[in-house]
């Protein structure tokens, strides 16, 4: 799995690409945990390049959400394709996460700006 990673202002943007399945999810987990341990408190996970996500991937997203609870932290997901969105909905995860359509909106949300 390739994982894009960039700092935009106060926010760390992490963009995994490919499939987040039971094998590759551990790579994403290690990457996220390293960032969180390194002090990242505002995080956008851009899922635009993700083909599908299974429950192992949901587990990693949940772990990040638990560590980035407001007000000290912020986690925003964006770029959900139909498959990724459906899995999140079936798992009842959409209510647990702040979701924005694109990266710009997600960055605005993570930096504390009001939702449009």
């Amino acid at each position: 799995m390739e994982i894009g990673d960039e700092q935009v202002g106060e926010t760390r943007v992490i963009a995994p690409r490919g499939r987040i399945d039971s094998v590759s999810s551990s790579e994403l987990e290690r990457h996220l945990v390293a960032r969180l341990d390194g002090g990242a408190r505002r995080v956008v996970i851009d899922l635009a390049g993700v083909e599908y996500v299974s429950s192992a991937g949901l587990r990693v997203l949940l772990l990040a959400a638990k560590r980035l609870k407001p007000p000290q932290g912020a986690l925003v997901l964006c770029g959900l394709g139909p498959g990724v969105r459906t899995v999140l909905e079936l798992a009842g995860f959409t209510s647990l996460f702040t979701v924005e359509p694109g990266r710009e909106q997600a960055l605005a949300r993570a930096s504390g700006a009001k939702a449009p």
């Binding site: 192992a56 949901l58 079936l90 798992a91």
Partner: peptide, 22 residues
């Protein structure tokens, strides 16, 4: 229970439920 919040939600246990729904 897919209605629990971030704190109450156990990690894991979702896989088979997804298969049933997919």
């Amino acid at each position: 229970d897919t209605t629990l919040g971030v704190d109450e939600r156990p990690i894991g246990g979702l896989g088979i439920e997804l298969v049933k729904r997919l």
